[in-house]
Design a protein around this nucleic acid. Structure first.
Length: 278
DNA sequence: CTTGGTTCCTGCGTGC
DNA sequence: TGCACGCAGGAACCAA
């Protein structure tokens, strides 16, 4: 569930909370998720390092460390970054960093799709699986209709499926792909190659707009509580969703009388309005 | 290369 | 009330 806006929200919160602090202790849960290069190596690379800042690339959260290494977290679909202070280790807590001032940051993931990785010191950088294949950030200027168009042109796959491809639209997941297509007025089951230049242009703007709005409202917290802020509180973009999770409800577009439909596309549950998406 | 299907994993909602 | 079942999904992986 954590997509670009959720990870960006966490990045902003964490940047304020841990920048300049030294990692003094690293604890692991009973059965931690996959770690690169394994829990012992991760601990060795983190201990004594100071966090210089927190960045993000697509859905990856990146802690820049004073020892030239980077701690990279991917939250999968149920991953959380939380603060538990000195509370005992929680259920599904995989790793806890303790800083010199007693502050802590924990990686929690019930469904275990998340990943923890520490890169090498830059002489021979260890690639983080999947990260080097990411396309440009859809919320940046460099993300143009020309770029998106080049990746959709000639493709027979449905446009929704391609939006989930991190090379095409990095940071986009199931929620924001549905919302972007709705904002652009394009049906998710359209063949990607059939989009006209004007539609590609609309989709480019819609993508950036929806993601930025998601950030503005601190991300989407659904009922399952998968994504929450570091203090456990909810984001609020779920109150502004136009189609996602709204099957059978009225389309929220002004003047549209449609009812939101749900359909499986590429194995994903997909929401759209048959009335205003063409 | 493209495309679509499968798998991993656990919590939760549903139906009997 | 209890339990089996199916669903949710990011991304790696596989098959045609």
């Amino acid at each position: 569930m954590p997509e670009l806006p959720e990870v960006e929200t966490l990045r902003r919160l964490l940047g304020r909370q841990v920048s300049g602090k030294c990692i003094e202790k690293v604890r692991f849960g009973v059965k931690p998720v996959t770690m690169q290069p394994g829990p012992a190596g991760v601990r060795r690379n983190l201990l004594g390092a100071t966090v210089l800042g927190v960045g993000r690339r697509g859905k990856y959260l990146v802690f820049h460390l004073s020892n030239d290494r980077k701690l990279v977290l991917h939250l999968g679909m149920s991953g959380q970054v939380r603060r538990f202070g000195r509370d005992p280790m929680q259920r599904h807590e995989h790793m806890r960093l303790e800083f010199s001032d007693g502050q802590t940051v924990s990686f929690v993931d019930a469904r275990r799709f998340g990943r923890v990785c520490v890169t090498d010191d830059g002489v021979l950088p260890r690639p983080v699986k999947g990260m080097e294949r990411l396309g440009p950030e859809p919320i940046e200027k460099e993300y143009t209709a020309a770029y998106l168009g080049a990746h959709l042109r000639g493709r027979k796959a449905r446009v929704k499926s391609l939006l989930l491809d991190q090379r095409v639209a990095c940071g986009v997941g199931n929620i924001y792909s549905d919302e972007a297509l709705h904002r652009a007025g394009i049906r998710p089951d359209r063949q990607a190659g059939s989009l006209k230049p004007s539609e590609v242009c609309r989709l480019t703007k819609a993508l950036g707009g929806v993601l930025k709005d998601g950030i503005r409202w601190c991300g989407t917290t659904m009922k399952d509580g998968g994504y929450v802020l570091v203090d456990g509180s909810a984001g609020s973009f779920q109150n502004r969703l136009q189609v996602y999770g709204r099957e059978g409800e009225r389309c929220r577009r002004r003047g549209c009388a449609g009812v939101v439909r749900r359909q499986r596309i590429g194995g994903r549950s997909t929401h759209f309005c048959p009335a205003c998406q063409k």
